[in-house]
Amino acid sequence: MMKILLLLISFPVFAQDFTGCGEYKFKGILKYDEKAPLKMSYLVREGTGSQMTFSLVNKSDVITLAPFIDKPSQFKAKIVKLMDGTKGELRTPMEIGLRFPDPMSASDTGIEKIKSVKCQ
């Protein structure tokens, strides 16, 4: 008997996960952004109804993240200013690594708080 199975694929989660200033784990992608102050933004859930856009505001962060331009990535970084809707800023990325996109997992791209810090 021929047996063929197909997975019912999952779809992205529509959640806002910013819960105040702090250190976050980011999973997204670095993209050139003409509108960003330093022309580079980090996009989380790119292309979905709940995309979040984080501008890079320090020159040193632009340089640090440069090897990952247009590559799915993940790292820890700080959010020290309240977000304006889905727009925010990130600072001092560290533990930067590649991310293997998993279309079956909703947690494949997003932000997750590690610890809280006071907003500036």
Partner: peptide, 27 residues
């Protein structure tokens, strides 16, 4: 879809509607 996270998450989960395809599997 998997159930959302966070305080505004739905109680159940989301399901896909017609005339919509996941055109780009990464996101």
């Amino acid at each position: 879809a998997k159930r959302s996270a966070g305080k505004d998450a739905e109680k159940t989960h989301r399901v896909a509607l017609a005339h919509s395809t996941a055109t780009e599997l990464n996101n």
